[in-house]
Every structure is written in structure tokens, then in C-alpha cells.
């Protein structure tokens, strides 16, 4: 008695499943014949997308797959755009160089990376208390407008400013603090000892 009920239940469930997926079979025979005879109408991208979204509604797994694929496409597109478009590339390189500067400041004792965004500048130098305010030239090898130099300094407190085409620029975003001097500004960075205190 129980087996009969179970068999009926299974049969009903299978029928329901088959009826749910019946739309896949609709016109399948015609499609196969058309493909074999080379008469299958080409689907447009809109139709493909519509069908894809229709399928997404039916299956959560497919939905997640499509989201993943879209994310990957956008990621590659982002990388492509950042490499091709100068403005975006500039933004990325400023961030990248500033990241490097932060790392250099925090981890490499005595190493200070000076970064100055100055697109179109002819010369960029850093002057400071670390060398009696004599200019040390920054370089922009990749011509992206971001000038930099790396200085090895003993532990201490250093005041400095950038000189861009002869004009003083004393407010470096990477500075620890700023002070007024001779009516202008100086940036200040601290270089710490690795371990032993004085």
C-alpha cells in the first residue's frame, strides 16, 4: 500500500518536473531539422541576452555564473582602460607611487621617497634641511607627470619643500606636519630609528 503511494508520488513529481522543462523541447525537432538543412535563423545579441536573463530567473546557479562572468569582463575592461586612457593611468600611477611612498616611509628605515605630481613641469627638485637646502632633482622616467626621488637619510626631523620650475611648493600631502617659514610653508617628515634608542 505504502509502495503504491510512493510510486504515485514519484510519478507525479517527475511529471511536474517534465512539464516545467517542457519549453526546452518545444520546437526542438524543427530546430534540429533546420540546423541540419542550414536554415536556422541567426539570433541577435538582444535575443541571446533576453534568453540568458530568462534562464537566470529559473536558475540561481546560472545567475551567479553570469554575475561572475560580468565581473571578470569589467575587471579586464578596467585594466584595459587604465592602460589606454592617460588620465586614468595618471590617477592609478599617483596612487601606486603614493602607496610605495607610504611603504618606504614606514618600513625602510632612513629611506624617504619624495613624490610630486607636476604634469608638464620642466624641472622638479626637493630642497630641505637634510642637505642645506640645495636642490636634489626628481625624475619622471615614465613621463606620466609624477616626479620622484628616493633619499637615504639618518634618523631625524626634516623640513623640506618642492621646487617646481623655480616655484616653491611646501605642502606635500605625504608630510607628517607643516610649518610656516619666511612667509611660506615647509613640509616636515620624521625618520625614525629601527630599534636602539639614543
Amino acid at each position: 500500500m505504502h509502495e503504491d503511494k510512493l510510486e504515485k508520488l514519484l510519478r507525479d513529481t517527475l511529471q511536474q518536473e517534465v512539464s516545467k522543462e517542457r519549453h526546452y523541447l518545444d520546437g526542438l525537432e524543427k530546430k534540429i531539422v533546420a540546423e541540419l538543412t542550414g536554415q536556422l535563423p541567426k539570433r541577435g545579441w538582444l535575443q541571446t541576452l533576453t534568453q540568458l536573463f530568462a534562464q537566470m530567473q529559473r536558475s540561481r546557479r546560472r545567475q551567479l555564473t553570469v554575475i561572475g562572468i560580468t565581473a571578470v569582463i569589467f575587471l579586464f575592461l578596467g585594466i584595459f582602460v587604465s592602460e589606454r586612457v592617460p588620465l586614468v593611468r595618471g590617477l592609478f600611477s599617483v596612487y601606486d607611487k603614493q602607496q610605495k611612498a607610504t611603504i618606504a616611509t614606514n618600513s625602510d628605515e632612513g629611506q624617504l621617497l619624495f613624490v610630486m605630481p607636476a604634469p608638464g613641469a620642466q624641472t622638479v627638485a626637493v630642497v630641505g634641511s637634510f642637505n642645506n637646502w640645495k636642490p636634489i632633482l626628481l625624475t619622471d622616467e615614465d613621463k606620466d607627470g609624477i616626479w620622484l626621488t628616493n633619499l637615504s637619510l639618518p634618523p631625524g626631523r626634516y623640513e623640506y619643500a618642492f621646487v617646481v620650475d623655480g616655484r616653491w611648493w611646501g605642502q606635500d600631502p605625504l608630510a607628517d606636519e607643516y610649518v610656516r617659514s619666511f612667509g611660506g610653508y615647509n613640509s616636515v617628515r620624521y625618520v625614525g630609528y629601527a630599534g636602539d634608542k639614543i
Partner: peptide, 8 residues
């Protein structure tokens, strides 16, 4: 700041 950087 000087103390934190072990300068003083």
C-alpha cells in the same frame, strides 16, 4: 613625534 620615532 620625536619620541615615537626614537629620535629623542
Amino acid at each position: 613625534m620625536l619620541e615615537r620615532n626614537a629620535i629623542i
